[in-house]
Nucleic acid binder design. Structure first.
Length: 464
RNA sequence: GGCCCCUUCAUCUAGCGGUUAGGAUUCCAGGUUUUCAUCCUGGCCACAGGGGUUCGAGUCCCCUAGGGGUCACCA
């Protein structure tokens, strides 16, 4: 039997990073087995859905490159299917109408709480045969087993046993006739042919309910894998206050999708000591049996490290394209390769790379005070002035970093000075700071004319 | 609170009865780099606690503590 997995978000907000991880696990497992990965939109609560949320989720999927098979399933378009099964259960006596109003239910709950009991439906209409109260639109409840245990073998947590008393006759259709979550999930998972359901372990307590539905309908349940949550750096549930939880926020911050996926796949899953995984390797090596039982904490440093790694290994052509999102267009720059090679190992995000590029391409507006103090001293002014002269009278071509390097070498030889004597003030003159790529590379990138302009401008600021 | 799940360095993790408890990120120290970054080398740092079982326990069992999840006419 071919593996079928799914991701089933409700369109109530953006795609959460935790959701992406379970989606990734499901996707990997389907691809690993040459199976299917399906996308199902859980929009049965008509009042909470939004089109924007749905589009945001699909956009995020596209960005990270997770593709899904078949059409997208929308639960809101499958109400007649659910209705059929509700009627079937009603006829078979496996479900029943409950005429308790919301108010009565609330009152019952309060009373139970007051007695220190667990709030729970008391089953008062389970075997009701009398005349229903007038003016009440009933909900429909499913008959859950009254004794025994509900058992299933979780692919990650192992054997899970829940006492039947923990599962009450839960509502499968609201008083307006719309079906509820645990009911439709079970039906769809069965009808869509799911073999493996990989989801967050916040669903662990839903599983017994869904198994009640499987049982009532005579469906064979899939294999369940409940993945522990991702916590924040303080071990609490990941929330908006912990920084980015929206997948698309990572794009905006300059992360590469392959870095994000690599980061997420290692949160709760591992393959020996391996840290770097290409998508192909993930597909080849992933197996849900290797998923960890325990919750993991989000760790930005590691993501940043991975992102830097992937940026370093991204071809310049692709980098050029990606950088356009960050207002850097160097597609037509004749020293593009030198520029990117010089810069791609100096930033952890595309945004940082973009900043580095602009730092080189644009003449400095100001000079870092510390750098000035360190570099523009002694005979720096005279040295820079003489260097301009040498550049202007240089006879050989000036294109590559090596060409400029030759000038530099000739200069220090003639002046009988150390490299640092010219290197430091030159660096500050070019970019206003004592950091960045080699000065010969920077000169090659901006060209001899611009180099001279920048040095002249710097020289003018040096007193003495 | 009931029920369920979880517990190895600060963090992600390896381990599947016998290991100097390994790797990665962070941090620190060197090296490379005229700077910065990269890169390389080295270092610091962990089996939550207590009982068992066993010749032997991070690994198996029990208890305690801590953390998390869930208890809707939401999904």
């Amino acid at each position: 039997m071919a593996t079928v997995t799914r991701f089933a978000p409700s369109p109530t907000g953006y795609l959460h990073i935790g959701g992406l991880r379970t989606a990734l696990f499901s996707w990997l497992w389907a691809r690993h087995n040459d199976g299917k990965f399906l996308l199902r939109i859980e929009d049965t609560d008509l009042s909470r859905n939004s089109q924007e949320a749905l589009e945001a989720i699909l956009e995020a999927f596209e960005w990270v490159g997770l593709d899904y098979d078949d059409e997208v399933f929308y639960q809101s378009r499958r109400f007649d299917i659910y209705k059929k099964y509700i009627e079937q259960l009603l006829e078979e006596g496996k479900a029943y109408r409950c005429y308790m109003t919301k108010e009565e239910l609330d009152a019952l709950r309060e009373e139970q709480m007051a007695h220190g009991e667990r709030p729970r439906y008391d089953g008062r209409y389970r075997d009701f045969t009398g005349t229903p109260p007038a003016g009440v639109d009933p909900v429909i409840r499913i008959k859950a087993p009254r004794e025994g245990t509900i058992v299933f073998e979780d692919g990650i947590k192992g054997r899970i046993e829940i006492d039947a008393s923990e599962v009450d006759d839960f509502i499968i259709a609201r008083s307006d006739g719309t079906p509820t979550y645990n009911f439709v999930v079970a039906i769809d998972d069965a009808l869509m042919g799911l073999t493996d359901v990989i989801r967050g372990d916040d669903h662990l307590s839903n599983t017994p309910k869904q198994l009640v539905v499987y049982e009532a309908l005579g469906f064979a349940p899939p294999k369940f894998y409940h993945v522990a949550m991702i916590h924040n750096e303080r071990g609490k549930k990941l929330s908006k206050r912990d920084g980015a939880t929206d997948v698309m926020e990572y794009k905006r911050q300059g992360f590469l999708p392959e870095a994000l996926l690599n980061f997420l796949v290692r949160l709760g899953w591992s393959h020996g000591d391996q840290e770097i995984f290409s998508l192909e390797e993930m597909i080849a090596l992933f197996n849900p049996k290797d998923i960890n039982k325990s919750a993991s904490s989000y760790n930005l440093d590691k993501l940043l490290w991975l992102n830097a790694h992937y940026i370093k290994n991204t071809p310049n052509e692709k980098l050029t394209m990606l950088l356009k999102e960050f207002d850097v267009d160097i597609a037509d720059h004749d020293k593009r390769e030198i520029l990117l090679d010089a810069v791609k190992e100096r930033g952890k995000t595309l945004r940082e790379i973009a900043d580095q590029i602009m730092l080189i391409l644009e003449a400095p507006q100001s000079y870092d005070a510390k750098a000035v103090k360190k570099a523009f001293k002694g005979d720096a002014k005279a040295i820079l002035t003489d260097f301009i002269a040498m550049l202007q009278t240089w006879e050989k071509p000036l294109h590559l970093p090596s060409d400029y390097h030759a000038v530099l070498e000739a200069f220090v030889a003639e002046k009988e000075i150390g490299f640092g004597k010219i290197g430091m003030p030159l660096r500050v003159a070019l970019v206003g700071a004592l950091t960045g790529p080699g000065v010969d590379e920077m000169m090659a990138i901006i060209g001899a004319d611009e180099t001279i302009v920048r040095i002249e401008k710097a020289v003018a600021t040096i007193e003495v």
